[in-house]
Amino acid sequence: MKKILLSTLPFLALAACAGGEKEVPVAVRIANATPAVSVTARGETTPVGTANADAADDPAIWRNAADPAQSLIVGTDKKAGLYVYGLDGKTRDFLDAGQVNNVDLRDHVAIGGNEGILVVASDRNDRAHAKLALFRLDPANAKLTALGKIDAGEGEAYGLCLSRQEDAIHAFIVLKDGTIHQVALDTSAATPAGRIVRSLKLGTQSEGCAVDDRTGTLYVAEEDVGLWRFDARAGGSTEPVKIADADGKNLVADAEGVAIAPIGEKDGYVIVSSQGDNAYVAYRIGDDSYAGRFRIVDGAIGGAEETDGIDLMLGDFGPDYPGGLFIAQDGHNAAAAQNFKLVAWDDIARALGLAE
């Protein structure tokens, strides 16, 4: 699909800021940033149902270990609800859940006495009172079933990521002001419950997050500041450690979605959406060093721009996605509504020269 021409972006960016502080045009931000390698998507989802709006936001991947090509993607339309897609990009289900912003999932979770796939979304239908919306995903028919909602503190729900800890599944809900509540979930009964076990804080608007369960590390993107990590354990330190500044070079504000590529017992990469210049940045897990940048450009399928949410899972996803699957929200999907682009992890790793 055709994209908005790069030559028009400076005028669009400046027009959007008329009457206020002028924003640096996208073309200038791209020119000033560290060079990025190019990859192309191998697939895309059907657009979300909300047209002419910033609507698609965040994806989550469920890998079908028995038949990887039959894996599923859950994606948010933050104006309307949750979609379930197949790897062919076709819509398998839609559930009207209202304004759900970010989403994550975990498999093999006790849900009402039966093991299943737990899907959790940040619910901001009430902007003053954050909630977690819980669902069960049935892999046999790709249907979502609402389980209920859990209070998650005062403020606007924004980012969301899950962690599997010794006692329970924990949800990290990132409020728009940078407050992060860690909520221990109890899904064993018919009605789910949860309690805030501790709170963390960043100074300004934050959203994207991901947890590396191997190392017990929570990664959070503070949009205009940079990428941070916390100890994800309920009894761990609440002090953040900065991994990278949004310096306009490697990471260009807004810093948005966060995803993890775990390799071995403690190595791999954390990926963050460098929304300000339509790129994605990889940092090495362990020493937090910069590993490279890439963009999803137009090919047989359109590229991705102004990406909010991302997700990544390594492993076999069938012949179209060897090595793993990377998914990025596309903020400019030509004349259609926003959607999600699907990229093979092998294509990214090869372009960046990353270790496997």
Rank of each mutant, 00 (worst) to 15 (best):
L6H: 12
L6W: 14
L9D: 06
L9R: 10
F11L: 14
A15P: 00
G20S: 09
E21A: 12
V26Y: 13
R29Y: 10
T34S: 15
P35W: 05
P35Q: 03
P35I: 07
V37H: 15
V37L: 14
V39R: 12
T40H: 13
A41Y: 03
E44C: 04
T46M: 15
T50S: 10
T50E: 02
A51K: 10
N52C: 01
A56C: 01
D58I: 06
D58N: 13
W62A: 09
A65L: 05
D67Y: 04
P68Q: 05
S71M: 01
L72V: 13
T76R: 11
A80C: 08
G81W: 01
A97S: 12
Q99K: 11
D104V: 02
R106W: 11
D107E: 12
G112C: 04
N114Q: 15
N114R: 14
I117K: 02
A121M: 07
S122P: 15
D123Q: 09
R124M: 00
R127D: 05
R127S: 07
A130P: 04
L134K: 11
R136D: 01
A140R: 09
G148V: 10
K149L: 10
A152G: 09
A152N: 13
G159W: 07
S163R: 03
A171F: 06
K176Q: 10
D177I: 09
G178D: 04
Q182K: 11
Q182V: 11
A189K: 13
T191V: 14
R198C: 12
L200E: 06
K201Y: 06
K201Q: 15
K201E: 13
V211H: 10
A221K: 04
G226P: 06
L227P: 00
D231N: 10
G235K: 14
G236V: 03
T238M: 07
E239I: 05
P240N: 03
P240V: 03
I243C: 12
I243T: 10
D245S: 14
G248D: 02
K249V: 10
L251Y: 03
A253K: 11
A253E: 14
V258F: 00
A261S: 07
E265L: 08
K266Q: 11
D267W: 02
D267S: 15
V270E: 06
N278C: 10
N278K: 00
Y280N: 00
V281D: 05
V281R: 01
D287F: 04
S289D: 11
Y290D: 08
G302Y: 01
A304M: 09
D311M: 06
M313G: 04
F317D: 02
D320C: 02
D320E: 13
P322R: 10
G323S: 10
L325I: 08
F326P: 00
I327V: 14
A328L: 01
Q329D: 02
N333V: 00
A335S: 15
A336R: 08
A336V: 01
F340L: 07
L342M: 14
D346H: 12
D346F: 08
A349W: 06
A351L: 07
L352P: 05
